[in-house]
């Protein structure tokens, strides 16, 4: 799995359900970060030249290479806007999230 995915978590009901000491599966994500976002990146695929600068610089690693196009994992994008700001072709626009 290239990216861990959001996974449901069953909270322990017995003491033995806890791991022995503070140790747990690497890359285990019971929560998403989508709720942090106030602006959402929207990609103009016609303008995008697939230079991958956004992929390289995303602090959260949410830009996905998808057969010649970029895709964004909206479960974990925090809407920081680095991708849009760094895009040499202005192919990403930050759009306000609607409730």
């Amino acid at each position: 799995m290239n990216r861990p995915k959001h996974t449901e978590f069953t909270f322990p009901t017995h003491i033995d359900d806890y791991p022995t000491g503070p140790q747990y599966k690497a890359g285990y994500l019971p929560e998403t970060n989508a709720g942090w976002r106030t602006f959402r990146p929207v990609v103009d695929h016609d303008a995008c030249v697939y230079c991958l600068r956004c992929y390289l610089l995303c602090p959260d690693g949410t830009i996905i290479k998808d057969s010649g196009q970029i895709k964004i994992d909206m479960d974990y994008c925090k809407g920081c806007g680095v991708c849009a700001h760094e895009c040499p072709k202005d192919a990403i626009e930050m759009v306000k999230e609607q409730l």
């Binding site: 290239n2 990216r3 890359g27 994500l29 995303c58 602090p59 959260d60 974990y76 925090k78 680095v82």
Partner: peptide
């Protein structure tokens, strides 16, 4: 493969890059 993913760093965190 992403090895640091789903973390709770502030939006735009340079350390996480």
């Amino acid at each position: 493969k992403e090895f640091f993913y789903g973390h709770k760093a502030c939006a735009g965190c340079g350390g996480s890059v």
